[in-house]
């Protein structure tokens, strides 16, 4: 894949992949991948002009502030950075966003959310991890809840989700829990991705200009 650069893409950045290849592996069609490339170029050159999305650029895009760190944004970045080389390449960007497409499979969304919440990548969502995420959310929202209330919220959720009662949530328990509470993965779908070329017509104009070059 990576070595078969056509003449047309010779000037593209490292990690660039042909839209036709990405379209065949994701819910996006070719013109949507081209539109995503326009968005990718914008995000990946916002601070460091190297055509790769760095963590600060991701934070800037999410929060309008390159220094605003957030546990969940960090986790999303780490999952998008499939090669774990500290940047999000174009192919990684499209493949990862594909999970958020309304037509992506529910199974992929459930798995992605599980990996997101499995902070220490042990293959389980542990009680301490859930508590850490609740505390991060409270901190982010400037909400103050007593330690006892936080413990109760975590305990209650664990008693519902950890059906095997071993103190951790495995993938099967997570799947069952999400099927009881489908709203848990509502944020795993971005309706805008359904037809990104309609939602962002300016990207299409730009990508057509590129094609003519």
């Amino acid at each position: 894949m990576g070595c078969k650069y056509s003449k047309k893409v010779i000037n593209k950045v490292p990690g660039y992949e042909e839209p036709i290849v990405l379209a065949s592996q994701t819910p996006f069609n070719v013109s949507e991948v081209e539109a995503l490339y326009e968005l990718y170029k914008k995000l990946s050159n916002s601070i460091i002009a190297d055509g790769l999305i760095h963590r600060e650029e991701f934070q800037l895009a999410l929060f309008r502030n390159k220094n605003k760190r957030n546990l969940f944004a960090d986790r999303i970045f780490d999952l998008f950075d499939i090669k774990k080389n500290g940047v999000i390449e174009f192919g990684e960007f499209v493949r990862s966003l594909g999970v958020f497409h309304p037509d992506a499979s529910m199974e992929d969304k459930i798995k992605f959310a599980f990996r997101l919440y499995d902070l220490r990548q042990t293959g389980y969502i542990e009680r301490e991890e859930l508590k850490e995420m609740v505390l991060a959310l409270l901190h982010e929202s400037d909400l103050v809840l007593s330690v006892d209330i936080v413990e109760s919220i975590v305990d209650k959720t664990f008693s519902d989700a950890d059906t095997k009662g071993d103190g951790r949530i495995d993938q099967d328990e997570w799947k069952a829990f999400v099927s009881k509470h489908p709203s848990l993965i509502k944020n795993m779908t971005l309706p805008y991705l359904k037809d990104i070329t309609l939602a962002f017509p300016s990207f299409v104009v730009n990508s057509e200009v590129d094609d003519a070059d």
Binding site: L39, L43, A61, L62, F63, R64, N70, L71, F72, A73, D74, R75, I76, L97, F100, L116, Y117, L130, M133, V134, A136, L137, E140, S141, L145, I149, S152, I153, V154, K156, T157, D160, A161, F177, H181, S183, L184, I185, K186, N187, L190, Y192, A199, F200
Partner: peptide, 26 residues
């Protein structure tokens, strides 16, 4: 809302850091 009845995952799913919509805003 009784906090103890909150689902912790519902709560954390409201994080701004999980809202990728901002990526598409100009």
């Amino acid at each position: 809302v009784e906090p103890v009845t909150m689902n912790a995952f519902e709560l954390i799913s409201t994080s701004q850091g999980l809202n990728l919509r901002s990526l598409f805003e100009k």
